[in-house]
Amino acid sequence: MAVAIVILLIALGSIAFHFWSPWWWTPIASNWQGMDDTILLTFWITGFVFVAICAFVAYCVWKYRYQKNRIAEYKPEDKKLETRLILITTLGVIALLAPGLLVWNNYISVPDNAYKVEVVAYQWGWKFRLPGKDGVLGKTDIKLINDENPFGLNLEDSYGKDDLLVDEGELHLLLDRPVKFELRAIDVLHNFYVPQFRGKMDMVPGMITYYWITPTRIGEFEILCAEYCGTGHYAMRGLVIVDKEKEYNKWEAKQITFDKMFAKNKNNKNLQLAKNTK
């Protein structure tokens, strides 16, 4: 009998835990309210099923507990009942799936007015690249990466020259403006994840993946790597700061273009060589 009570308690306890425990999602800071809504929808539908079935099991265990004289029912199947259950389940599944697919469609269709930011992941940190004045990110290739050209930009692509390179693990974003993250990794798999933004996508060396968000709240948010990437995975953190236009422009103005950085690196190297030859 204890087991019937415990099963019931587990069902009720789970509900109680949901309502009275302090743990729930981190307050959202992007436009993906739709994701939270689908989670809630799924939560309530599945939660209902869970409690209902647990209660049914508990009832059966109590009501039909073993008695020497009881004879169980002999009923191999019940087509009508089974068909009904299949129909109800199918309806439930459709109710879960349909809104999910709609939100997914939004997630993978980037709005035209989104500006681009490139995120480069490496073991174990984050770098960023902004398209600069021309609004276009220059071409890159992992093979071109070296000390002078840490992002691996294609020197022949003129679009790349004015790209702004951010190498300090801190990215600023504009409030209420859709932004498309172009994601690149140079060594192993990574995943650009900010819990408050909800979005997520793996970064695969040799590929450019993407997703987009619109930040809806000013603040500082931590970047985490969400795809296991080696020993330093847990320490691969960065910072996103959502700003209003004024602060953002101030920050952008401080960033250095690829042209300048490349020249500087080259000079440094020449100096280094000169020193060495002395």
Binding site: W32, M35, T46, G100, L101, Y107, A226
Partner: peptide, 17 residues
């Protein structure tokens, strides 16, 4: 039932990993 969360592609985005 929690599989229904993760199988549904949108819900999977914030919850995966």
């Amino acid at each position: 039932l929690t599989g229904l969360f993760l199988g549904n592609v949108t819900v999977d985005v914030p919850l995966s990993d």
